[in-house]
């Protein structure tokens, strides 16, 4: 997961890629705080307060030591997926017209709703990427287990993380051999059939690989228990960070209440 997802698909941090400052904090605390953060931000409505939340998320990004441009680019990629839906909103929510396009009236209320969704989505995903995404994938699994996630789900997560790398390499090998045989993708039946065979071959090989894995694990007496290599400790710095973030969230909630009252 950390190494192989090349180019744009590369995760933001990992072994040797970047030593994020936020990685010094307890992973469990980071996961819990991220969940609270997301719930608070989603419940906010006022645009100014949401803008404040986005600024807070950017602050976390600055603090995390993740590469800011890359992280923001990734966030912008998510925006490109939802931009279409957001652009429709001003025209589908009735209200005070602001401008009209090809005879369609765009409403002020719709525009406001679109901005609200965009701010919320970006603030949350940026916080998720900086607080949780900066973890090593295996640490994420261990921390989730420490937070009482079902053992089998954590096993499944760890296996997936472990083998994404391996299977990505296998996919590349199969693609290379297709290329060597002169395969060029296009919009035709041959392409779709070839891609289908490629996926089918990956599945067959994955299943055969999993049989070997199971045999190797049985040989070593695997019993389904998750062995934690390092135990998590809540230090004073963790508590301070959690308190500071909670205070910031409380401030956002207060601002929202004041805005709603006025």
């Amino acid at each position: 997961m950390t190494y192989v997802l090349t180019g744009d698909e590369k995760p933001l941090s990992g072994i040797g890629v970047c030593r994020a400052k936020v990685t010094a904090f307890d992973p469990r605390m980071r996961i819990v705080m991220t969940a609270i953060y997301a719930i608070v931000v989603v419940s906010l409505n006022s645009l100014w307060v949401l803008a404040g939340a986005l600024i807070l998320s950017s602050g976390l990004l600055a603090l995390s030591g993740l590469p800011p441009r890359k992280t923001l680019k990734r966030m912008a990629m998510m925006d490109s997926f939802i931009i279409f839906m957001l652009l429709l909103l001003p025209f589908t929510i009735p209200g005070t017209p602001v401008f009209s396009l090809w005879g369609l009236e765009a409403s002020w209320e719709g525009l406001r709703r679109a901005v609200e969704i965009a701010l919320t989505a970006n603030a949350v995903i940026l916080a998720v990427m900086t607080l949780v995404g900066s973890m090593e994938p295996v640490t994420l699994g261990h921390a989730l287990f420490a937070l009482k996630t079902p053992e089998r789900l954590v096993h499944l997560l760890m296996f997936t993380i472990r083998y994404i790398d391996v299977l990505r390499e296998e996919y590349q090998r199969l693609r290379t051999s297709m290329k060597l045989r002169g395969f060029r993708p296009g919009t035709n039946w041959h392409t779709y059939r070839s891609y289908g065979y490629l996926v089918g071959m990956m599945l067959v090989r994955a299943i055969e690989r999993s049989e070997r894995i199971l045999a190797a694990m049985k040989c070593r007496g695997f019993s389904g228990r998750i062995v934690l290599l390092d135990d998590f400790r809540l230090s004073r710095a963790d508590l301070l960070f959690a308190a500071a973030l909670s205070a910031a969230l409380a401030a956002l909630i207060c601002a929202e209440a004041i805005y709603a009252a006025s």
Partner: peptide, 9 residues
């Protein structure tokens, strides 16, 4: 679980 994990990947 190994089969499910590898397939999930």
């Amino acid at each position: 679980i190994p089969a499910a994990g590898v397939l999930s990947a």
